[in-house]
């Protein structure tokens, strides 16, 4: 039996990312947000371009991660194994 990589995370998708991916969540691997975003762009090509930068995978302006209920666009943000990770529009609210 193959064990999942220790830094495999579920990324919950909201708004445009959810519509493009056609799913409410996607999996990606990364010890930091930058690694996770790059892997997410590879695994969900529909996000690459409109939401994630095709070269780096990092979210374009207008999108952000929410980790543990805190907004962040810090690529070095370290991700614990049980991190709750959301990909959302950075313009939250009205």
């Amino acid at each position: 039996m193959t064990m999942p990589p220790p830094d495999l995370h579920t990324v919950e998708l909201f708004g445009v990312p959810r519509l493009l991916a056609g799913a409410r969540a996607a999996e990606a691997v990364g010890a930091t947000l930058a690694e996770l975003a790059a892997d997410l762009a590879r695994r969900v090509p529909a996000l690459s371009g409109p939401v994630l930068d095709p070269a780096s995978g990092w979210p374009n302006a207008g999108y952000a991660f929410v980790v543990g209920e805190r907004f962040t666009r810090d690529p070095a943000h370290a991700l614990p194994g049980d991190a709750s990770i959301l990909l959302v529009a950075s313009v939250a609210g009205g």
């Binding site: 708004g15 445009v16 519509l19 409109p50 374009n60 302006a61 207008g62 999108y63 529009a89 313009v91």
Partner: peptide, 8 residues
């Protein structure tokens, strides 16, 4: 991108 959420 600043208004993408609203448009989409």
């Amino acid at each position: 991108p600043a208004t993408a959420k609203y448009r989409e």
